[in-house]
Amino acid sequence: MRTAVCAAAVLCACLAPAAHAQSSITLYGIIDNGIAYTNSVASSIHAKGASRWSMATGFGSGDRWGFYGREDLGGGMAAVFRLESGFSGINGTSSQGGRLFGRQAYVGLSSDRYGTVTLGRQYDFTFDYVAVLMSWLQFGSIYGAHIGDVDDSFQTFRLNNTVKYEVSPFSGLKLGALYGFSNQAAGENGAGFANNRAYAFGLDYLRGPMHIVASYLELSNPSAGLATSTNPGGTVGDEYSGSTSIFYNAGFVERQRIYALGGGYAFGPATLNVIVTDTHLDYRGAHHLRVDNYEINGRYQVTPALTAGLGYIFTNGDGYTGSGAASFATGDHPKWHQVNAGVSYLLSKRTDLHFSAVYQRLAGDASVVAINVFGPAGEGRNSQLALLAGFRHRF
């Protein structure tokens, strides 16, 4: 009997590597903490602001940990999944409204020939394809995203209940399509299939030193995802409203359309990127707002370990004169200027020190400045400055 048991154990040990050789699960993460100085920050738009020194987290990359899994099914097919959790590195709390896997949570099938289809909570293509050319991801910090994140390039909100398809028809080109369900039964006053749903498309073309990206996202009744509204179980959850979401907080948004186009080119150690996003917001009461972001940024690889970059963003708003417009403008032509600067130094392949600065100034009819995540500068302030120094480790 003992001989049989030993033989079985040896057989299992020999077979186990073969049985699991085609499957893998990767544990990964980022933690990024540091010190921040803001020349003025307030609890609300109309409150008085004051300077602040603080500990902050998620400078260059939002803190996260997650699992990515892949199982080879044969014939070029594989099952894939990702569970990714966001958290604060300075107090340990969960991000994305306390969700366990609030950054991403999906499962799907991948084919070498036919592409990949995934289902769950996912990014749209503005983030997947276009944001990678923006200064806040290229070399800056998360605080350097476009004002109000009106184009969702920072992913203030992710999309729930989605089916996402990506395919690469030939080398260098990726195409994508996404649909997010409202998960709501038919009803009165607009409730039903289209209440808080989404659909999106994307293109990513990379050939040699040239990179071209484009995306489109349309949301129907995204404000319905707020807990006090009509469909918090739809594709946009309760993340739609935040302290710096100045355009979403201005009223119930019945439709949001985001067009984005970008291009980049590498000149040896230098890279130049240009991005344009065009966002249309339709508010309840037949009010409309258009917000265009124009960004140009450059990054230079000074040494293999040292990278520096500088970016400029011009934001131009037009059209909204409803009562909610008073929360960000005194007229229908608000404008903003923003400069992002950043330097990072690699201590190893996985660990770096980084420094960044974000300066934002209002113009035109704009009445508030609000650097991403930090919050508004306060009443009577026409500019805001944030200086940040952090230590980041990837695992």
Rank of each mutant, 00 (worst) to 15 (best):
S24L: 08
R64Q: 10
S367R: 02
Y205D: 14
Q155A: 12
D72I: 13
R64E: 11
L206V: 14
F81Q: 09
G89D: 02
S43R: 12
L362Y: 12
I90D: 15
G285C: 07
M1D: 14
S135A: 10
G187S: 07
G115L: 04
S223I: 01
T244F: 05
Y259C: 05
S95T: 13
N195T: 09
A325S: 05
P269F: 08
Y106N: 10
D278N: 11
T38E: 07
N249G: 03
D365H: 06
R394W: 10
N297Y: 08
I296L: 15
Q384A: 10
L306H: 06
G148T: 00
G237L: 01
N231G: 11
N39Y: 00
T315G: 09
Y114P: 08
I142S: 10
Y283W: 04
P222W: 01
G268A: 07
L27S: 12
P304C: 13
F67P: 00
T321K: 05
S323R: 03
T230I: 10
Y129A: 04
G29A: 07
N382S: 12
L388M: 13
T26N: 12
A377T: 03
G342V: 07
T156Y: 08
G264W: 02
I45G: 03
A78N: 11
R103H: 14
S223M: 00
T116C: 03
P17F: 02
S141Q: 02
